[in-house]
Amino acid sequence: SSMNLEFSQLSMLPHLADLVSYSIQKVIGFAKMIPGFRDLSAEDQIVLLKSSAIEVIMLRSNQSFTLEDMSWTCGSNDFKYRVSDVTQAGHSMDLLEPLVKFQVGLKKLNLHEEEHVLLMAICILSPDRPGVQDTSLVESLQDKLSEILQTYIRCRHPPPGSRLLYAKMIQKLADLRSLNEEHSRQYRCLSFQPEHSMQLTPLVLEVFGNEIS
């Protein structure tokens, strides 16, 4: 029953909301450094950021994910997040099971930092996000980044790790689309309840949407 009480109160929600809010700011700062991103219209920048934010957060969180105990460990054990912590923030295994699988698969690619960064940039500059106006401009920026990534792998990533690496990375972007969809579903559910949406931050509400308004 204490477990039920903890769940109904979503004891980790305020903390996770803060963490996600902070991460969104990092994603915005990162996007602004991608060549060409600032040249897009403000509307396209906003559409791209809102649609990719959760995917980039999932990607960047891989740096703190450890296969040792399948947790996100930031520095010391004081900042260790387990699946159970995320369920206490209102998410279910329908998201967390594929998310952990995704983290394990991505970790096993042993990406260089350069590849990791390029993958996040390619994710943000996806021309097929709903609402993008200048799709051809976004596409040309993404194409340039993909070329750089493929060249990097060819020249700097030794075999056998480089084998099919680019294809595997693109598959990760596909995985992120379904994780994004499931996250949206669960977020919508959560934000429908005022007692929970009031624990979110203004930035989270703006980026993921505010159902109570």
Binding site: Q25, K26, I28, G29, K32, A42, Q45, I46, L49, K50, P202, L203, E206, V207, S213
Partner: peptide, 18 residues
Amino acid sequence: KKKENNALLRYLLDKDDV
């Protein structure tokens, strides 16, 4: 549905450092 203005996002995109 109310019109989205994305004021926070606009602000964070405009400011020089995040």
